[in-house]
């Protein structure tokens, strides 16, 4: 399905076909993402649930330990990413479940939309929603825990974008995989949390590093590499296995 991107060794028209194919995949993915976001902003089903959930968890954590202590600086990253992972599961559960009423999934799959566009579009929509939830949580976190998280804003934004894309991709893949299963809402977290472990470790380490006043150390920067590798590998796998996962 997905052509390789070996433009150097193929005739020009083949390269052009590939470029057109990639453009079309992207355009269709954006249509799907826009449609999903339009529905979500109208119903606010997962946005409300995930946002409220994130804030409640942040509040509960403040009772678990003294929010003013120096310790917050050391565990802040871990706390935030666990909240995001849990809130993410709520978003992903809705992602494909939204296609079930009226058998919209069949309508989409039998249309010229490719399975990989559909998967990537779903990931894009979840990505935007999750980033929104993260922004709100971060603000609340700063207030509840008296935390100056904006010391290194650009690096922090980069970490959030990279890690959130990884979570959103896996969420879309396994949202699609579990959409027709019994106990769908239970299966999704059981499957994605173990798979997210490397990504979450990396995001936590980097976020903790960025909450301190010092720039990242070289061994912390290695975690950035983990994030990038994770994103690339799982996006590629998602594209390759989209048909297998969606058409069965």
């Amino acid at each position: 399905m997905t052509p390789g991107c070996c433009t150097g060794c193929t005739p020009n028209w083949v390269a052009r076909e590939h470029r057109l194919f990639a453009m079309r995949t992207l355009r269709q993915a954006i249509s799907v993402a826009r449609k999903d976001l339009a529905i979500e902003f109208r119903t606010k089903e997962s946005l409300n649930a995930a946002g409220a959930f994130a804030i409640v968890i942040l509040l509960l954590f403040s009772f678990a330990f003294d929010p003013a202590a120096e310790a917050v600086r050391e565990i802040g990253g871990g706390l935030l990413w666990l909240v995001f992972a849990f809130a993410g599961a709520l978003v992903f559960n809705r992602g494909f479940a939204r296609e079930l009423p009226n058998e919209c999934l069949d309508a989409l799959l039998s249309s010229p939309l490719s399975a990989s566009s559909l998967l990537i579009g779903k990931a894009m929509a979840s990505f935007v929603l999750l980033l929104g939830v993260e922004a709100v949580s971060l603000a609340v976190f700063g207030i509840f825990y008296d935390m100056r998280w904006w010391i290194q804003p650009w690096q922090l934004a980069a970490v959030f974008v990279l890690a959130t894309w990884g979570i959103a991709t896996l969420g879309a893949v396994f949202g699609a995989l579990t959409v027709n299963l019994r106990l769908r809402e239970l299966m999704l977290p059981i499957i994605i949390y173990p798979l997210l472990i490397p990504l979450l470790i990396a995001a936590i380490e980097l976020t903790n590093g960025l909450f301190s006043a010092e720039p990242l150390k070289p061994d912390q920067l290695l975690w950035g590499r983990v994030l990038i590798v994770f994103d690339i590998v799982f996006t590629a796998l998602a594209l390759a296995l989209a048909e297998t996962i969606l058409v069965n």
């Binding site: 896996l170 893949v173 995989l177 499957i191 173990p194 798979l195 472990i197 490397p198 590998v233 799982f234 796998l237 296995l241 297998t244 996962i245």
Partner: peptide
């Protein structure tokens, strides 16, 4: 099979 592939890569 899809999950197995994702799992091994992970």
């Amino acid at each position: 099979a899809a999950l197995c592939i994702f799992g091994c890569v992970d």
